[in-house]
Simulated assay, not measured.
Amino acid sequence: MAPAVDVDDDDDPVVAEYDVFITPELEQQLYVLQYINRPPDQPLTKANQSQPSEIRIKPESGFIEVDVPINIRQNYNKPQGVSWGEALRKTKGFGQKAYGTAGGFERVMPRLSTRPGATADAPAAAAIDNDDNFEEYITNFEDANEKGHVLNTQIFGGQIMKDEGSAPSYMVGTFRDDQLHLTKLDGIVQMRTEFHHLDATGQLDAVNRRREKESQEGVKPTEPKAFLPTVKKSGGDTAAELTQTFFKAANQEKWAKLQYSDEDSEAAYEAYNERLFLTDPAAAPKLQSTMNNAQYLDSISAPSKKRRAPRRREDLIEISDDSDEVEGAAEG
């Protein structure tokens, strides 16, 4: 049996002390992107050969997407990569700008070139059926990749969780010697893998099914239809109507591209030093608390129940085990 070791539970020494500073609000927005399903030992950096090739944002709806290159020369299914790459290329060719939630789950369906009334500049469905070069793309894989026929990008996407005032406020901290500088965040984004290539494949299948159906049944001529004008409310207030309005607005909002700087680049270090530290800590005003220690502990503690006054014996009701009579019942 091992000898007993004296443990002093009250021994909790202070190992370090830091002066805490709060930086002023930034003119630019500051977000933290959390990659939920990517291992922490695989950062999106140039040194790890995974520097993002593009970052885009929809400021109003809050959607963000990050494009990360895929290593297509190692453990890569070339036929499947060509198939998915072509699906994305073709759907984007007839006007699809976004997929999934960032696109409001909307699909752009091209007009058939044989449909009466189709304009010359309208995207035709016949253009998406050009798969004669599929084997050639696989044979000349490198050339096909350079020309945009191969899925060579992994997309991470998420929506900004903004500080609405009721939720906790998050801050990012940076250390410099014995100082801790805190900068308020404008929001957090949980980034997850997006499967736009599957959305594009399903969209392409829907277009081909429609084209096949109309080739068998024939294209119905466009006929004038009578309509009755009605007055509709500009917007509903139910959950379903609000969601529909939000997705419609998200689909119509255009992407804005952002400039990306690798974490080891000079631009990244300059932004780090300029934006996440207080310029003159010596001149910073000191925060003055309006509560003492006891008041602070009371404010963060759960509310305590007031103790009830002990009851007097004459107020108690005693019930005998031998009879149903009540003895000493208090009258009230």
Rank of each mutant, 00 (worst) to 15 (best):
S83T: 04
D178A: 10
T279Y: 06
K286T: 06
P285L: 06
F134G: 04
Y35V: 01
G328D: 13
I160F: 00
Q244H: 10
S61N: 02
R56Q: 01
P281N: 01
Q179G: 10
S50N: 11
V7Y: 15
A302L: 04
A98R: 03
G157F: 04
Q252V: 07
A250M: 11
Q295A: 06
E25V: 11
G187K: 09
A167M: 07
P59K: 06
E212M: 10
N37G: 07
A87I: 02
D321H: 14
I188F: 11
A126P: 01
N251M: 03
A206H: 05
K46M: 00
K220F: 09
V82T: 09
L185W: 01
F21Q: 07
M191Q: 13
P59C: 03
P110M: 06
N48K: 08
E212T: 14
M291Y: 05
L297W: 00
E25I: 02
I188V: 15
G148T: 09
R176S: 15
D163E: 03
F63H: 11
A102M: 01
T201W: 05
S166V: 08
Y18N: 10
L112N: 14
Y269W: 12
A240W: 11
T245F: 12
T174C: 08
T243F: 12
A294N: 13
G104N: 10
P168S: 05
E17G: 08
P3N: 02
E65G: 00
S320M: 11
K286C: 00
A240M: 15
V68H: 09
A302T: 05
S320W: 05
T91W: 00
V15E: 13
G165M: 14
K305Y: 10
N293S: 12
D129M: 07
Y170H: 08
T193I: 12
L33D: 13
G103V: 00
K92S: 06
I70V: 15
Q203D: 07
V219A: 06
R308F: 01
Y137I: 06
D10C: 02
N152H: 14
L112E: 14
S61M: 04
D129H: 08
Q159K: 11
F246E: 13
A98N: 04
R73W: 04
D321W: 14
G81D: 01
W84Q: 09
A102T: 06
